[in-house]
Design a protein around this nucleic acid. Sequence first.
DNA 1: GTCTATACCCGGATAGAC
DNA 2: GTCTATCCGGGTATAGAC
Lengths: 184, 184
Amino acid sequence: MARANTTKRAILDAALELAATKGITGTTMDEVAELAGVAKGSLYYNFSSKDQLFEALLQEGVGALADSLRSAKGELRGWDAVDALVTRLLDLIAANAPLAKLMASEIFRTDRAWQETLFALRHDALAVFAEAIDETDAAAGRSGIMASGVFGAVLMSGLEWLVFEPERDRDEVAAAILATLRVR
Amino acid sequence: MARANTTKRAILDAALELAATKGITGTTMDEVAELAGVAKGSLYYNFSSKDQLFEALLQEGVGALADSLRSAKGELRGWDAVDALVTRLLDLIAANAPLAKLMASEIFRTDRAWQETLFALRHDALAVFAEAIDETDAAAGRSGIMASGVFGAVLMSGLEWLVFEPERDRDEVAAAILATLRVR
DNA sequence: GTCTATACCCGGATAGAC
DNA sequence: GTCTATCCGGGTATAGAC
């Protein structure tokens, strides 16, 4: 069982790294097995199919993201909370760029086997932003759209930074994002 | 030649529609041929490969997007220009949701045959936003990051609207996006 | 310029030994 | 629980008739 868990871990890590650059459909089970250092048979011992492997991967990754956002909000309210969430999300993206890339490319796909799962996870993460925005005076019953906007701004700026301008430092990027948003 | 052009058009339209939901890798040439109403051989007569077909598709789509943004900016400067660009981009997304989905999923891929092409197009589109931001007093040498943020906010809010909350009306969505941004 | 038919390979999944 | 070997469907691309 401990053995199984470390194998599972290796498989999930390999799958994430490959999918971040090649996409999920573009990643083959052979490649995952090779990078994980296990035989292909072991993939299918630990996961029932390729779809189920990537569903587990997204569940773990996006679930952890939502949890971290919730803890970042803590007792903060309104724009203060949005400010803290933006910064936390940027740090999460920086610490897990492969997951961020994968989210960016999967978030609007509606044909996947794991669609329901991803939709729920996406909702959990955005709900934290929406909740904070609802505590401001700008929400006006459209905090869902606004939450997506803030999330999208951070995601795209964060990946722009990591992929195309990695020489910049984190504080500068955080400040740039906050400068475009009506925070405070 | 006129014949070839209409065939090309049908192929490109079919390819875009399919790729918007299934992704490029997940779209097969057989499916494109069937939806376009032509035989598979005609695909390869008009485009040398699947990669080249999708490169042409992105070139056409993102190129037109950049042109439209530039014309929306016109003589406007600073926050007024950002405001106009946000609204125009939202309209472009609404009018061409499949392209918007495709962009969202392809923009951070770095392993594609058409990587160079897409990078240049992406730069053209973002440059219009960056230029407007540079005309404000908030740029501080980081207009590239800020432009990505604004673009990401509009793209994600726009797709949130079209994919998950289509009952809202366009003006409401535009207002919600602008309300999250420090415009004016 | 468009079609049908086919070559060829690669990817997901399974069987069964160890 | 992990391996190797293999099956089989489906995918890109090409050949050649019309």
